[in-house]
Design a protein around this nucleic acid. Structure first.
Length: 214
DNA sequence: ACATTAAGTGATT
DNA sequence: AATCACTTAATGT
């Protein structure tokens, strides 16, 4: 009973879920791992179930009809993906793309249980509701970042998010990669970064940005 | 030494 | 803020 995965689940979710629920998760889940860069789900694909992230982090993208990517939010360990929380199996087509940011371990829980546990476990119900809440708040942040903030503000937010997510101030990124994620162009990003460098916020290297203030 | 790829820059829209 | 055209710098072969 005390397998490694069981402990892992208890460690991440034990403070939230009652033992019976942990037990139920344990006997119905699929444990998966994926390394950085792996595309977990593409737009239009069907979710096999809902994911619970145990370690690592994911980034979630939206894409417009011309194929432009836009970073929506990050998912960290202990989180689930609110976009996958549909109760109607017919609606389980993904409207987003999820890519592994840092090597990740996660559980897949078949959708059937999502519904069942909602009525069975109070802790599950509040977990689902609070992750909706959490995600909605975060989504509002990105919305007003898009609507009201200039690109240099978005870039600053992007960089400090990276520092937070990766737990390091030394970011291994090219200007081109940043431009893609913010849906801008490489030249513009280079100029803004140069500007931030001259303000003493960071130091630029090839393939690397050292963050000083963030 | 040469090729490739990342980053920097002035000019134009 | 984006794009073009070009330069310069870093890195791999």
């Amino acid at each position: 009973m005390l397998s490694g995965t069981h402990n892992l689940i208890t460690e991440k979710f034990g403070y939230l879920f009652e033992p019976e629920l942990i037990e139920a998760i344990h006997s119905n889940m699929l444990l998966k791992e994926a390394s950085a860069g792996t595309v977990l789900i593409e737009i239009g694909q069907t979710f096999p179930g809902i994911p619970l992230l145990l370690s690592g982090s994911l980034k979630v993208f939206r894409e417009d009809d011309q194929g432009n990517e836009l970073l929506l939010y990050y998912i960290e360990s202990g989180d689930t993906c609110a976009m996958s929380l549909t109760f109607d199996p017919k609606l389980l087509k993904s409207t987003i793309r999820a890519v592994v940011e840092e090597d990740a371990q996660f559980l897949i829980i078949p959708i059937a249980f999502l519904d069942k546990w909602m009525v069975q476990y109070a802790s599950w119900r509040s977990f689902i509701i609070s992750s909706f809440n959490h995600r909605l708040t975060e989504m509002l942040d990105t919305i007003d970042s898009l609507a009201f903030k200039q690109l240099d503000e978005r870039l600053k937010n992007y960089l400090s998010d990276k520092v937070k997510i990766n737990g390091t101030t030394s970011l291994h990124l090219t200007h081109f990669e940043i431009a893609e994620e913010l849906n801008s162009s490489r030249v513009v990003i280079s100029r803004l970064l140069k500007q931030l460098e001259s303000q003493g916020n960071l130091i630029l290297h090839r393939n690397k940005i050292e963050m000083l203030l963030f």
